[in-house]
């Protein structure tokens, strides 16, 4: 596991608090990330509001996925990664030494680019999270599975197939199953890394509908290379370029009247 070198910029007292107590559920300050000697993220400072959808766009290799993976410390898994600056979750710097990464990831769930259901039954996939966090009671698990699948708009499609292998359903269903699997541990934030890029347009629109519903309860951050998707679903959009945050604004404002030339060039398709 990679050694994480942290410089704490702001030290806020850790107290259990509701998301509403902070202007930003997640707030990064001067966050830099290095792969060995290469600087992949350059002084990123941005805040993410509760119960909203924040989209991160930018060309391939701009650091958008890398940034997303900073927010639940999935970059810890990459050898040779070093992070400086801070990123807080509800006021607490997640790069502090005494942060329990396991507990953090329970609160900040992640959906990946390629649907990655485990090779087990649909039921076991959704029950996986609650089980590893200690829920053993069958009725309780049944309840969580149903609730999570309903939230992911999958219950009616799959209610009679819960014991089937999760690999036997379609790609779009698999991705929604992965969302349901995340929801089962009741996170507060959902990080989505190009969740629809491997899906057809119909499955994509289902995921987008789902996101609009889910933002009532959850805070969503989505990385996408699809600008229309960002424009359709998100409230705020961040534009990344070569490891830098170029512009971050209300989605409408960013797409209609971008203040940076590079943003305009990108969204009008002049490069990328």
């Amino acid at each position: 596991m990679a050694a994480i070198d942290t410089t704490i910029i702001k030290d806020t007292p850790a107290s259990p608090a509701a998301a509403g107590d902070y202007e930003y559920v997640i707030e990064s300050k001067d966050l830099c990330l290095y792969y060995g000697k290469t600087m992949a993220l350059k002084h990123i400072s941005m805040g993410i509001r509760a119960n909203s959808i924040t989209a991160i766009i930018g060309p391939s290799g701009c650091g958008k996925s890398t940034y997303l993976r900073c927010l639940n410390r999935m970059n810890d898994l990459v050898p040779g990664v070093r992070v400086t600056g801070s990123s807080t979750f509800k006021g607490r710097n997640i790069y502090d030494r005494d942060v329990d990464v396991v507990a953090l990831r329970k609160q900040i769930g992640m959906v990946f680019q390629k649907p990655n259901p485990f090779p087990m039954s649909i039921y076991d996939n959704v029950a996986y999270g609650p089980r590893i966090h200690g829920t053993r009671n069958r009725q309780e698990l049944d309840r969580i599975v149903e609730k999570s699948l309903r939230q992911a708009a999958l219950w009616d499609e799959l209610r009679d197939r819960l014991q089937d292998s999760a690999l036997s359903i379609s790609g779009g269903q698999q991705q929604r199953l992965c969302i349901a699997r995340c929801l089962a541990v009741e996170p507060e934030v959902l990080l989505m890394d190009e969740p629809a890029s491997a899906l057809d347009p119909i499955a994509t629109s289902k995921i987008e509908d789902l996101m609009r519903v889910l933002k009532e309860k959850y805070t969503i951050v989505i990385v996408t290379h699809n600008m229309q998707q960002a424009a359709r679903v998100s409230d705020r959009t961040a534009f990344f370029l070569m490891g830098e945050l170029i512009e971050y604004d209300n989605t409408r404002k960013l797409f209609e009247t971008p203040s940076d030339r590079r943003t305009e060039d990108y969204i009008t398709g002049r490069f990328g």
Partner: peptide, 24 residues
């Protein structure tokens, strides 16, 4: 992707190995 999926849900490395990697 299986391991990352499990770790991203707050499973420990050992849980991931025991519940996902070994059965697979």
């Amino acid at each position: 992707s299986y391991k990352h999926g499990s770790l991203a849900m707050g499973a420990s490395k050992w849980q991931t190995i025991w519940k996902v990697v070994l059965p697979t």
